[in-house]
Simulated scan of single mutants.
Amino acid sequence: MTNKVLVADYFDCISLSVKQILEKSDVFETNEAKYCDEAYLKIKRAISDNIPYNLLICDLNFKTDHKNTNLNSGEELISAIKKLQPDIKIIVFSDEVKSFRIKSLFKNYNINSFVYKGRNSVIELDKAIQAIFVEEIKNPSLEIEALNHKSLVNIRERDISLIKLISNGYTLSEISKDFKKSGINPNSESSIEKWINKLRIHLNAKNKVHLIAITKDLGLI
């Protein structure tokens, strides 16, 4: 049986690397798409032709250019495709470093694996593909491995909320009131100050201004 795989990635070199992995075996038929809309239409057409794809390998971030598109991110693509074909297997292959975003992929989008683009990524991707087609299950060890990757920035969504308030000029008193109103804990001024200091240490920030600059550089806020 031939497994159909669609690789959705803006960069041709990534698609080529993935094809080289799959071409080691004669049980894969591989196609590529550079845009989310293009990937969506290919999967929709394959379903209509009664030869659906078994696996989607996609990035999360897609470059924008002159083309007008309806789907602009990996999450939007995955969500749309899951409505078309709920049983399709999905591997996210990305250099994303936000741990809360990766957790959301498993929890809210029910992906099968996340593989970080980096050193040894080809080996890890091959392992993820084999886990899906050989074991034919969602492999929890790959989820844990993804979330423990040394390149990840282990920042929670509530950490982001705190840093955003700081960047908007909120005082400790104002943040405390906002958190109490929203039911976010801890919410006392002293505990929030300790929380900020822990974030500074975690991200090697010298002060609050530096903390905001680092999180902006990482694309967290």
Rank of each mutant, 00 (worst) to 15 (best):
M1I: 08
M1Y: 12
N3F: 15
N3L: 10
L6V: 10
L6H: 07
V7S: 02
A8P: 06
A8Q: 10
Y10G: 09
D12M: 13
C13G: 11
C13K: 14
I14C: 14
S15Y: 13
L16C: 11
S17A: 15
V18Q: 03
Q20C: 10
E23S: 13
K24W: 02
K24P: 01
S25R: 11
F28A: 03
F28I: 03
F28Y: 14
E29H: 13
T30D: 06
N31L: 14
A33K: 07
C36W: 11
D37M: 06
D37G: 10
Y40G: 04
I43R: 08
A46Q: 02
A46Y: 00
I47K: 14
N50V: 03
N54D: 15
L55Y: 04
L56P: 12
I57Q: 04
C58K: 03
D59W: 05
L60E: 04
T64W: 05
D65P: 09
T69V: 15
N70Q: 13
L71N: 09
N72L: 10
S73F: 01
G74Y: 06
E75G: 01
K83V: 05
Q85L: 09
V92K: 09
V92Q: 08
F93Q: 03
K98L: 03
K98G: 04
R101Y: 11
R101W: 06
K103C: 09
F106N: 00
N108Y: 12
N108E: 15
Y109L: 15
Y109T: 04
N110D: 13
N110K: 10
N112Y: 14
F114M: 01
Y116A: 11
K117A: 04
G118N: 08
S121F: 06
V122L: 15
D126F: 04
D126E: 14
A128C: 09
I129H: 06
A131W: 07
V134F: 15
V134D: 10
E135A: 12
K138L: 02
E143R: 13
N148I: 02
N148E: 12
N148R: 12
S151M: 13
L152C: 05
V153F: 07
V153R: 01
N154G: 00
N168R: 11
N168Q: 12
G169H: 05
G169C: 08
G169M: 05
Y170P: 02
T171L: 10
L172Y: 11
E174S: 11
D178G: 00
K181I: 06
K181L: 11
K181G: 00
I184R: 01
S188Y: 05
S188Q: 08
I192N: 00
K194Y: 10
W195Y: 15
I196M: 02
I196G: 00
I196T: 05
A205Q: 00
A205K: 00
N207Y: 07
K208T: 13
K208S: 15
H210F: 08
I214E: 01
I214N: 01
T215G: 04
T215V: 09
L218F: 03
